[in-house]
């Protein structure tokens, strides 16, 4: 069933595009070109953060950090491998991508931890970055409970990532 989603979605876009007489090939190329720019924008951050995470992991620091938080996460059934991902996810998108890549080189994407990490990447966002950019354009300086509520959503996302993988896939 899930193998149908993407091909059908692509087919649907093409059919609607043709009906609406969109210059489908030209627009595709245009959109793809814009994405190249967007991808290059994250490259420097990706290099910086993958180096930091790679070195931190090699030094044993990442394992120490995970062990520190593990009493709480073990209670919730949250896999230890995913702790660094949960910690960096609200702060940096490229950082989360770097950690996700590190996790998948260690464990199989089809293992419990690999699946939970995938669900986290798919279902949470870079909270602090979004808040900084969005409020940055306004004169608002007191954001009241914006951060608290956004982090509530993130935390719920982490817990449910583990829970749903256990319920639906294991």
């Amino acid at each position: 069933m899930s193998t149908y989603v993407i091909p059908v979605f692509i087919g649907l876009i093409m059919v609607i595009g043709l009906i609406k007489k969109v210059d489908v090939f030209g627009e595709f190329a245009d959109g793809a070109k814009d994405s190249i720019g967007a991808a290059f924008e994250i490259l420097p951050a990706l290099i910086a953060l993958m180096t930091a995470i790679g070195m931190f992991k090699a030094s044993g620091g990442l394992d120490m950090l995970s062990t520190l938080v593990s009493p709480l996460t073990d209670m919730l059934g949250f896999p230890r491998e995913c702790i660094p991902l949960a910690l960096i996810r609200p702060i940096s998108g490229s950082g989360a991508l770097a950690v996700f890549e590190t996790i998948l080189t260690e464990v199989s994407p089809d293992s419990y931890a690999g699946r939970v990490a995938s669900v986290i990447i798919g279902s949470t966002e870079t909270t602090f970055y979004t808040i900084a950019v969005y409020y940055g354009i306004t004169k608002v300086r007191n954001t009241r409970h914006a951060i608290a509520s956004s982090l509530t959503a993130d935390f719920t996302g982490f817990i449910l990532s583990a829970l749903t993988v256990r319920l639906f896939l294991h």
Binding site: F28, A38, A39, I47
Partner: peptide, 26 residues
């Protein structure tokens, strides 16, 4: 590894960026 990951993701990003541009224009 970062550049390797970037290159790997580049294709997908462009493909979706292109498809979504069609969706937008339609």
């Amino acid at each position: 590894e970062a550049v390797d990951l970037f290159l790997y993701l580049l294709g997908g990003m462009c493909m979706w960026g292109g498809l979504m541009r069609i969706a937008e224009k339609a």
